[in-house]
């Protein structure tokens, strides 16, 4: 059974629906103690990083202990950001610290669209003329290394994003997307994985990615 952690950040309907469509059995643990019997753990999330403060010490301990016992963990959106050390969105709220680095606002860095010299100058002016945040919509994935998550998917596959903050590119980065700056669209280190996009809203490609993760769990 997959533990779908509900910490009150947004609505889990879409994730539940996707897991159901893939035939996965899951439940929402009522207390951290229940996490111990999970075959896999999903930390979903939309909205503000501060919402993860609901995952207090007992939850953090239970999830870290499960990871130590080789239970697969998947963070989605804010759930991916929570795997890092923290986020400038809520500096006082610590992340899980399984990945090195902190998440930052996408517009904190200069847009490459503005600066990249292009033969297609007119198009750059009209199409990539300004960086909009939140980053909403379908964007493509580049794979810096092979990963379990993206097995069977081709580079350039597009998935659905909706977020303002993003995680840096690190050694564990399994997919990179660029919106103003390159960021970790996905991370995978052993059985710890996270996706910044929403696989549950990314059509067939998203379901394939979720299924790839479920196979491990």
């Amino acid at each position: 059974m997959i533990a779908l952690v509900d910490y009150g950040a947004g609505n889990l309907t879409s994730v539940r629906k996707a897991l159901g469509a893939l035939g996965a059995a899951f439940w929402t643990p009522a207390s951290p103690d229940e996490v111990a019997r999970a075959a896999g753990i999903i930390v979903p999330g939309v909205g503000h990083f501060s919402a993860t403060s609901a995952l207090d010490a007992p939850w953090r301990t239970a999830i870290l202990e499960a990871v130590d016992r080789s239970t697969p963990l998947l963070g989605i959106c804010v759930g991916l950001q929570w795997l890092f050390e923290g986020s400038t969105e809520a500096p006082a709220v610590p992340g899980l610290g399984l990945m090195a680095g902190r998440c930052t606002l996408l517009s904190d860095r200069q847009s490459v669209d503005h600066e990249s010299p292009s033969k297609d100058g007119d198009r750059q002016q009209t199409i990539g003329r300004r960086l909009k945040v939140p980053h909403v919509g379908w964007n493509s994935l580049v794979f810096p290394k092979p990963s379990r998550l993206f097995e069977g998917l081709v580079e350039g596959t597009q998935v659905y994003f909706t977020h303002s903050y993003a995680a840096p590119v690190v050694a564990a980065t399994a997919a990179i997307t660029v919106h103003g700056m390159p960021f970790s669209a996905a991370v995978e280190n052993g059985l710890v994985a996270g996706v910044q996009f929403h696989p549950e809203k990314s059509g067939d490609a998203g379901l394939r990615i979720l299924r790839n993760w479920l196979i491990q769990a």
């Binding site: 297609d120 198009r123 199409i127 379908w138 493509s140 794979f143 092979p146 379990r148 993206f150 097995e151 069977g152 998917l153 081709v154 580079e155 350039g156 596959t157 597009q158 067939d204 490609a205 394939r208």
Partner: peptide, 25 residues
């Protein structure tokens, strides 16, 4: 028209339909 769109099709790369499939392990 060089306007970036998500082309239909499962996991295919826009503009690169013949891109190699990720190596199976």
């Amino acid at each position: 028209r060089n306007i970036p769109v998500r082309l239909p099709g499962h996991g295919t790369a826009p503009g690169a339909p013949d891109a190699p499939v990720h190596p199976q392990r």
